[in-house]
Design a binder for these strands. Structure first.
Lengths: 143, 143
DNA sequence: CTGTGTGCAAAGCTTTTGCACTACT
DNA sequence: AGTAGTGCAAAAGCTTTGCACACAG
């Protein structure tokens, strides 16, 4: 392996630093996974991440993909979106936003938080505080 | 087993009729499951339903519980609530409402839809229509 | 007697756990 | 050399599928 100039590429070299900023040691597998997921705004299941790793020739085990994605969520590098009872999606967009979930084809689409203004939140139960508000708008195809 | 007057108990005898109203033939297993889930407003996982069936001495297989709950959802007898990526909850309350999800203990609490007024919904993508809006407010214990 | 519909064992997913191994101190 | 942390094979858990059986027409 030969090194590349630090400033030449932004994405490739920024990833390790980004991981460290979030308290994650940038190992080879983690950088691979982060590069795939963070390369653009997208919603991928663990399975899809694994498939892309294979395509890129990176051999990472299923368990590591799951554990790494879990770690990324814990460290707020990505968001976990739950819409399907049998599969979790990982969202590279961590800014406040909501989702359309197309129940016919299983795809997710972002909705800016500003497009769903909520007048007020209900009072939370005694002894608790609100951590997040997730809105999912289930849509179907008219055809 | 001895029969009870038809009008004496409301719940027990109303269930078969309710199932039929929703186009579901009221077999023994389905009535058992419906009685457990619909006896009161609650959020149960498939697993919890199975456990209660066992406690009531009703022997119904795991597969039948899953398939029956899926059928109930399809026929709008109950609602499926998705908050945990590894488990689905079934909600006996089918009226418009949302949920608090306590991430610390995994419990769900109803929130009346009127308590979360939404000014407007975003325009849905071309060729689709909104089927439902689910709001989940994740809460944590302050302690 | 035929066909539709039901219930369940077994199979198929997704996700977690426990342990060998690595890489720093 | 010791120790904290990483990656993965195997195990566990949730859900679906495929088929034998039951029941209505």
């Amino acid at each position: 392996m030969h090194s590349t100039p630090a400033s030449a590429q932004n994405t490739k070299d920024a990833i390790p630093a980004l991981l460290q900023d979030h308290g994650i040691s940038p190992t080879a597998q983690r950088v691979e996974i982060a590069m795939i997921l963070l390369s653009e705004r997208q919603h991928l299941s663990a399975d899809q991440v694994l498939k892309r790793l294979d395509e890129h020739g990176a051999a990472v085990s299923k368990a590591t993909v799951y554990n790494t994605l879990g770690l990324f969520v814990e460290r707020s590098l990505v968001r976990q979106v739950i819409v399907d009872s049998t599969k979790a999606f990982y969202d590279s967009n961590v800014e406040a936003h909501h989702h359309f979930y197309n129940a016919d084809d299983g795809t997710l689409t972002d909705v800016d938080a500003a497009e769903v203004p909520i007048e007020q939140l209900p009072r939370v139960p005694e002894g608790t505080f609100a951590e997040a508000v997730d809105i999912v708008i289930r849509i179907r195809n008219t055809t």
